[in-house]
Every structure is written in C-alpha cells, then in structure tokens.
Amino acid sequence: MTQDAAAPLLELRGVRAAYGSIEVLHGVDLVVPPASVVALLGPNGAGKTTTLSVACGLMSPTAGSVHVAGRDVTGVPPEVLAQKGLTTIPEGRGIFPNLTVRENLQMATLAGVGIKQVEEVAYGRFPRLAERRNQIAGTMSGGEQQMLALARGLAVDPAVLLLDELSMGLAPLVVEELYGIVAQIAKEGTSILVVEQFARTVLGVADIAAIMVHGQVRRVGDPTTVEQELSAAYLGG
C-alpha cells in the first residue's frame, strides 16, 4: 500500500460480468477514493449487487479489472481479499443464522483479527449484542441481525467496506441508527461503498453518489443533485 495518497482504495475499470452468457454488467467504472462514502444507487436489477460481487471477488469479471489500493486484484479469491482488509456485508443478513452471536463474531476473526478485539468493538458499539451473545443469531430481530453483520465490518477495521442493502426489510428508525454507525466508520477513515435502494437515507451519509442503470454507472456526482434525478427514476414520474 505504498501508492500515493490520491490512489483510490477501490477501483473498478471497465468491468463486465455475466451469468451464463447473459451479460449484466456492461463496462462498469467506479472509484472509491480514500476515506469517503460512495453510494451506488439504482432501480431493481440494475446490476448493483453484481457489481459488489465482482468487487469482493465472489464473481469473476469477464472483462475489465478490479484494483484495491492500486493493485490489480482481478480473480483473487474472496477469502484472500477479506484477509487483506476488504470487508463485505452481503445483501439480506450478513450473518450465519444458525450460529450464536459470539460464534458469528468468531467467524469475523478469520480475517485475521483477535477475538478479544472483535468482541470489544462489537459489544462496545452494540451493547444489545453483548446481552444476546449466546443467542442463536437467526432468532434475533432483523435490526439486531443487521447490527451483528455491521459489527463484523466495524471490528475487523477494514480498509474498504462494501455494504449491500443494509436497510432491506428493516424499520426506518433502525435503518437510521445503522447508517449513523456507517457514518462513524467512515469518519474513522474507512472507505465505504454502499449499495442501496432506499436512496434518501443513504444520501445523508454519502460523499459521492453513483447511479447505476442498465449494467452501467450512468451518473456520478454530488448526492444532493443526484437525489433529484432519483425520484424520477423510481416512480417513473
């Protein structure tokens, strides 16, 4: 990581990706500068989650490249990226539902952090998780599950954090609470790429907003200006 400070932490260059022979990403260019929050927005099926899958290594692009801190990491398996400081909280609940809270946190240590540190950060930030440390994660409320998922992102102190649909199926107040925490993580210097359908909430924390349509990033800019165009995109009004 001896690149100059201006080098983006995560960069996708001309990424194309396909399921079978149906291409869903047609050349995605996306840059996450250091210590910034980038919101990736767009209608259903625009390719946001696929973009994230490529970025975290779960999916290999058919063309283009992925760079982390200036290094080409295209084709590097996801577990290696995870150990190098690229943490992903996937869509839905990024937790193991049949493991207890504590066991979930123990899985976070696979990225190379000690369990002590993980528990300290997780329980410190979310005291409710400490109360439930021996509860099976799948039996907690949706908000608590998402907190657990986010706790992992916090605890391993990543260089880049990828968040997919943090808000899905959660009550608005919980979503706000979670994004408050995302904002704090960002403040501590982590670069974050957030995928969201709930446009307005995330625009509050984002430095940069990118709109994705038709498997391409169509628009990148200041969140407030982008917001205007979004409402039009969603309800077609």
């Binding site: 704090q184 709930f198 995330v202």
Partner: peptide, 17 residues
C-alpha cells in the same frame, strides 16, 4: 424512497457527524 420523511433527525445527525 426511504424512511427519511417522518423522522430525519438521526440521518441528519449522522450526516453532520
């Protein structure tokens, strides 16, 4: 569009933070 409409304070606070 997202639940900011009825109670935006938390988001605003986060944004300011």
């Amino acid at each position: 569009l997202g639940g900011g409409g009825n109670d935006a304070t938390a988001v605003e606070r986060a944004a300011v933070d």
